[in-house]
Amino acid sequence: MKKRGIGIGCTFYGTGYGNGFPDISTAFVEIHDDGSVLILTGAVDCGQGSTTVLTQIAAEELGIPTDMVTITCADTGCTPDSGTTAATRQTYTTGNAIRLACQKAKKTLLEWAAKELGTNTIEGLVIAEGKIMVKGHPQKSITFKEACAKARFAGNRLIGEASFTTHATQVNMEDGQGAPYWPYAFGTQIAEVEVDTETGKVEVLRIVAAQDVGKAINPQSVEGQIEGGVAQGLGWSLLEEVKLSSGNITNPAFSSYLIPTVLDMPEIETYIIESHEPTGPYGAKGVGEPAMLSAAPAILNAIHDAIGVRINDLPATPEKILEALQEKK
């Protein structure tokens, strides 16, 4: 008999290295004669999309389109240390470093432009539509490109360097008290499953996933992280297990260590919640790891809802489900 059930999983995740560990990213920026930009940062893109997001942050801060931004990442021969691509930290920590570095380069440019445009403070200028304009009097402007060339010819160097440290405090080793991580990310996922009580097989029919990411710099990328996180959570709860015999891995192959294929995956509905983190770049905090947390408990709770037995020992294989059903009888 096939029985359906629905389950929910709520989770949270402290991002960053945490516990007072030096959690620092550094970025360099250089604006060229034609207004195009080079960013240097040590941040590795493992495929999750940090390079794209960091480019967007630089473009936004400088008021230019992203196709004017080139970024070189993760070469110790030319990029500064930006920490590990881990702990859901690159958008937040390196994003902040790039934002600060761009502000420094921009300040030099605007100081030159303020003189050129006869403004008494750079606060009176705005960069938009390829121009540096006087606020409230946009008729007075200079193209961004011309400003960069002239400012550099006048002897300025439009460069910026900045480091950003994510704050975290060590916990007390006696009672664990402290503020070990910042910021925290939150998520809820609800799963609907169908359990075949004859075979013990679980089919996940639907997952709805909502993640609080502070601000989605690139919503499609955020969705991709959530969908990929659901897949890993599903694999973890139902399929995956490194099997050991006296410390030896007996299934070191994709034929015996099963990860989800497209046919194991349900349709996933994602909801991006933007709570705005004031310390994050444009309100952003990370999404990578938090996105994989909620699917597994949601699926396990859905199995319980469907057939009235709990699998408390992962993964919830058909064998374990049949055994649990047998015990229940």
Partner: peptide, 17 residues
Amino acid sequence: KVAISGNLCRCTGYSKI
């Protein structure tokens, strides 16, 4: 889905593919 079921992806969850 059937056509790509022999191709594993560990990152995307397949939705966007």
